[in-house]
Amino acid sequence: MTSSTSVPSLDRNPRVRITNVELLASAWHVLRRTTFDYQHGDGHWTTEQRETYDRGNGATVLLYDLAGGTVLLTRQFRYPVYVNDHPDGMFLETAAGLLDEDDAETAIRREAEEETGVRIGELQHVFDVYTSPGSVTERLHCYAAPYDPAARGEGGGLAEEGEDIEVVEFPFPAALKMIETGEIADAKTIMLLQWAALGGPFRTA
């Protein structure tokens, strides 16, 4: 069952004219089908349809201990990767979460403490990325922050939300190697680890 929704007033690109938006689902997040006219590079127009999945924007943080040479990650069961050939669905990744009603910095401080037990002090914004631009609207705000292993709390996520999160600490070179072996297959985590090696706290040149 579909229903029409209001057409957004997007006018930043004169080559795109939105004509109709249908609401397909909104049980968890929002799935829409949009019809629009698009002007190609040679000047001709075509009518296109795209479905977009709007789950809100998110934030993530790479927690690192420069003195100890380690990074702090999480491991939890992720059903979508399990159903798409991941061996057991137990996914290694940086602490992350949706913004909900908060700004990105407030959200990632909240998520880091809930998931890893780390209360972030200094926080560095690294970059923002669109995680799957062909269909998902999400923009992910990516941060890095130092942590003190001696000052960590319990973490583990929120039981009332069904979270069962293991906090895991790796030497930074081992974490980088896990990208090559496929043990770390999460895009945001890979990007932040590579940033840390190339221009971040663990850069060697």
Rank of each mutant, 00 (worst) to 15 (best):
M1T: 08
M1Q: 05
M1I: 01
T2M: 11
S3E: 13
S3P: 15
S4L: 08
S4W: 07
S4E: 11
S6Q: 10
S6R: 11
V7K: 04
S9D: 13
R12T: 15
P14M: 01
P14A: 01
V16K: 02
V16T: 06
I18L: 11
T19C: 05
N20C: 13
V21P: 00
E22S: 15
S26A: 12
V30A: 14
L31C: 14
F36R: 01
F36A: 03
Y38S: 04
Q39Y: 02
H40T: 06
G41K: 13
G41P: 14
G41N: 14
D42R: 07
T47N: 00
E48Q: 02
T52G: 10
Y53E: 04
R55C: 14
N57C: 11
N57L: 02
A59Y: 04
A59F: 03
V61K: 02
L66K: 14
A67I: 10
G69H: 05
T70N: 01
T74I: 07
R75H: 04
P80D: 10
V81C: 08
Y82S: 09
Y82C: 07
N84C: 08
H86A: 04
P87M: 00
G89C: 03
M90R: 14
F91S: 04
L92Y: 13
L92D: 15
G97V: 02
E101P: 14
D102N: 15
D103F: 11
A104M: 06
T106K: 00
R109S: 09
R110Q: 08
E111M: 05
E111K: 12
A112W: 11
E113R: 08
E113K: 03
E114C: 09
V118L: 03
V118T: 10
E122S: 13
Q124R: 12
Q124N: 15
F127G: 02
P133A: 05
P133W: 03
S135L: 14
V136P: 07
V136T: 05
E138I: 08
E138Q: 15
L140I: 06
C142W: 08
Y143L: 01
A144R: 00
P146Q: 02
D148G: 01
P149F: 00
A151H: 05
A151E: 03
R152G: 07
E154N: 10
E154S: 12
E154I: 01
G155N: 13
G157P: 06
L158H: 05
L158K: 08
A159R: 08
E160I: 09
E161V: 12
D164W: 04
I165K: 06
E166D: 14
V167T: 01
E169C: 07
P171V: 12
A174N: 06
A174S: 12
A174K: 01
A175C: 06
L176G: 13
M178L: 03
E180C: 07
T181G: 03
G182I: 05
E183G: 08
E183T: 04
A185P: 12
A185K: 04
D186L: 02
D186M: 03
T189L: 00
T189G: 01
I190Q: 10
M191P: 08
Q194V: 00
A197K: 03
R203D: 02
R203T: 06
